[in-house]
Simulated scan of single mutants.
Amino acid sequence: MSEADRMDARARRWPPLWLPLLLLVSLTGCERDDAATAPASGPPDAVVMAVTAYAGAAPAFVAVAQGHFEREGLAVTVQRHLSGKEALDAVLQGKADVATVADLPIALAAAKGQPLSILATLSTQNDQAVVGRTDLGVWTPDALRGKRIGVTAGTSADFALDVLLVRQRLSRADVRVVDRKPRDLPDALAAGEVDAIATWEPYVADARRRVGDRAAVFSSGGIYESTFNLASSRRFALQRGETVRRLLAGLLRAEQLLARDPAACESIVAQALDKSPEEVRPLLARSRFSLALEQHLLVVLEDQGRWAMKNELVQAARPPNFLDAVYLDGLAAVKPRAVTIIH
């Protein structure tokens, strides 16, 4: 039975006294707290979720810890990775079903012709930054010319670095880029192996602690905001649409708890990130948690596709149609007003 049929059946059972309330809910656009998912029957549906220790993935951590996926009839196994790029690679290699991942790895994979699907944006962040060492001559962004900059290739920080360089009328040819794993970047900066690093939280805060008053931080605020998304292979989205819907329903419950009682979620996210609740609090404050599929996401992906081609990160004659990399039906069934992509 479709969602429309179920709502029609309930409307016939409920007494007329409820009709004004239903009209008010529909006019205000409120989503149902139970995410409109019927109780699951039969054995749990097994799902492997590849995640990274990042505050933007908080809805996934909360959904697991609070049993929201279990209530949706899912048995979710969490697979941990160092970056969203690695998590997405696990999906594309068939080692995981879904991944939490930033926008750039998605753009690169789609531009390479990988058959993937974006199921929803989980959060939006303004936490990308370049951290330089003043004792190594990095006082201002324009002082990056000729400097060694550590960054994790193929991640959103890689794109954010180029955006920042362009703002300073610099290019990749004007700096020396050093590829490092995300967790190794603060150590590389502290050891003087690089003069600056381009990364995201919590590694920005880690680097500032390691370097102390020698740190100069240049935020990407006003230049680039990254999104953190839930993605799968195209086959998974098309063949397991009901599983996708239940995953998103569980994440919607987590989103509602993050909005209603963020303090209750701090310890959950802190454990996932191996941080203290005090360290996690500002990280959560920098994120906007809202399941969505917005037109702006396609605009960003298209910009990143062109950037990747220009820097020869992918070999393609032109950027792909990123609309083909979006699966709309799952979120449309759970949170329809959050789907604003033109299709």
Rank of each mutant, 00 (worst) to 15 (best):
R180F: 12
R240N: 15
T243V: 15
D184M: 07
D162P: 05
A190S: 04
P202H: 07
I197T: 01
D162C: 10
E255D: 14
F218V: 03
E201L: 12
G212L: 04
T152H: 14
R235N: 09
I149T: 06
A249E: 08
A190F: 11
E242C: 08
D174F: 02
S156P: 08
E225Y: 09
F159S: 05
A173H: 07
R246G: 13
A191K: 15
I149S: 08
A205C: 00
A264D: 01
R253M: 12
A254R: 05
D184G: 07
R172W: 13
R169K: 11
L165I: 02
L247C: 03
R145K: 07
R169F: 08
S267E: 12
L238V: 07
Q239M: 11
V178T: 03
T227G: 14
V204L: 09
G221P: 01
I223F: 15
V194Y: 01
A160T: 02
L257M: 05
R167Y: 01
V166G: 03
L257V: 00
R145Y: 05
G192Q: 05
A237H: 01
A249R: 04
A237N: 00
A216R: 15
L248C: 06
R209Q: 13
A191M: 10
Y203W: 15
P186C: 10
Y203N: 13
S233H: 03
A237Q: 00
V163E: 11
Q256E: 14
G241M: 04
G221K: 14
L189P: 02
L248D: 06
I223Y: 14
E193V: 02
D187W: 11
L248M: 05
A157R: 09
P262C: 05
A264E: 04
A270R: 09
D187Q: 13
V177G: 03
A249W: 12
Q168M: 12
A198K: 05
D162T: 10
L251Y: 02
R210N: 05
I149A: 08
A249L: 11
P202F: 12
R246M: 09
S226G: 15
V177E: 00
A254Y: 01
T152W: 12
G154C: 06
R240Q: 15
G146M: 07
R172S: 10
E225Q: 15
P186K: 08
T155C: 07
R210H: 12
L258N: 11
G150W: 10
A153P: 09
R208I: 15
A173K: 04
A249G: 15
A231H: 10
T199V: 07
V177H: 01
I268M: 10
L230E: 08
S156Q: 05
L258A: 10
R240T: 00
G250T: 02
I149C: 04
D195T: 03
R235Y: 15
R234W: 07
S232L: 09
